[in-house]
Simulated assay, not measured.
Amino acid sequence: MLSWFSSFFTQIENFFGTPKLLFDGWQSTARITLTTILLYIILIVLLKIFGSRSVSSFSVYDMIATITIGSVISSTLVLKEINLINGMVAIVVLLILQFSLSKVVTKWEGLYPFANPTPKVVFYKGEFKTGSMKKARVNKEEIYSAIRREAGTTSDNVEAVLLEPNGDLSVIKNISPEYENEITKYM
């Protein structure tokens, strides 16, 4: 059965004149299978050590780490030139960088704006902030949708809508005067 399978694909490849287009032999298939299983287990262990924040959308640097880790994983799985140890080392280095940056930004809050965008007020006290909306590439319909989804109301019952650093729209229904600066500092 297995020889028929490989023979069938070889015939198709020969017909089109493109060797190893569909099938590169059982050795490479076994390598990818074994590497996938091992890398999956290693990634579970590493994420247990470094925390699930490494693969969430909390911040820009978390997102960069997530995308880069995904790229390293895919390269390790399918490219013969990258072995399991090299892929694992790259993932560990990325997780250490992401973990270190999150610790630095937590310790020195003044660095936060350099590692993450700040929230943007896109709607405030019945008024759309068109300048912020253009910079954030957010339109009125997205704001209305967030108000309905998050607050279950209409714009006349909402004080503010902010675009958060992770791309979510936060809807604020009530702002007490003594805490108004928590919102207005992002205008």
Rank of each mutant, 00 (worst) to 15 (best):
P119V: 14
T130H: 10
V105M: 05
I64D: 13
P177I: 13
S176G: 06
D62Y: 10
S145D: 04
A115G: 09
V161S: 09
T118R: 10
M88E: 08
V161P: 00
K140A: 15
I85F: 11
A65C: 13
P119Y: 09
M63S: 08
V93L: 10
A65R: 01
L101M: 03
V72G: 04
V104P: 07
K173E: 12
F123S: 04
K125A: 14
L94Q: 12
F128N: 15
R149W: 02
I91N: 06
G110N: 03
E127M: 05
D168N: 10
N86A: 06
F123D: 01
E178L: 09
E150L: 04
L95Q: 04
L84H: 05
V121K: 07
E159G: 08
T68L: 02
I172Q: 08
L77R: 00
S170K: 10
I85R: 07
T154E: 04
E178G: 10
A115R: 02
A160W: 06
T106F: 07
N83W: 07
S176W: 06
V122F: 02
S71R: 09
E142P: 01
F114C: 12
F123G: 02
G126M: 15
W108F: 15
G70C: 05
E164K: 00
T130V: 13
V105W: 00
G126P: 00
N139A: 13
D156I: 12
P119I: 08
V161H: 01
V121E: 01
I82H: 08
S155L: 04
E178M: 09
A146P: 00
I82Q: 15
P119F: 09
I69Q: 01
E141A: 12
E141N: 14
P165L: 05
E142F: 01
L95H: 02
Y124W: 14
L111D: 10
S155C: 04
A65E: 05
I82R: 07
V78L: 10
N174F: 06
P165Q: 11
L101V: 07
T154A: 06
Q98Y: 03
E109N: 11
E81N: 12
F99T: 10
V72H: 03
I147M: 02
V104N: 14
V89D: 12
E164A: 02
T66L: 09
E150D: 12
V161F: 02
N174Q: 12
V89F: 04
L162T: 14
V89Y: 01
S75I: 02
P117K: 13
I175R: 09
P165K: 15
V121R: 11
S155I: 04
L84K: 07
A65K: 06
K129F: 11
I73A: 02
L84Q: 06
E159F: 06
I172H: 09
V93K: 05
P117T: 14
P165T: 13
K103S: 06
I96V: 08
S74V: 04
K140M: 14
L79Y: 11
N139W: 15
T118W: 03
S145I: 01
R148Y: 00
F114E: 11
G152S: 03
Y144Q: 13
M133C: 10
A136M: 11
E127N: 07
I147D: 00
I69G: 00
E109M: 12
R148F: 00
V89S: 11
F123T: 04
A136K: 05
E178H: 05
T106M: 06
V104K: 07
S74N: 08
S75K: 03
D156A: 11
W108Y: 09
I96Q: 03
F128K: 15
S71Y: 05
E142M: 13
L163Y: 04
E178S: 12
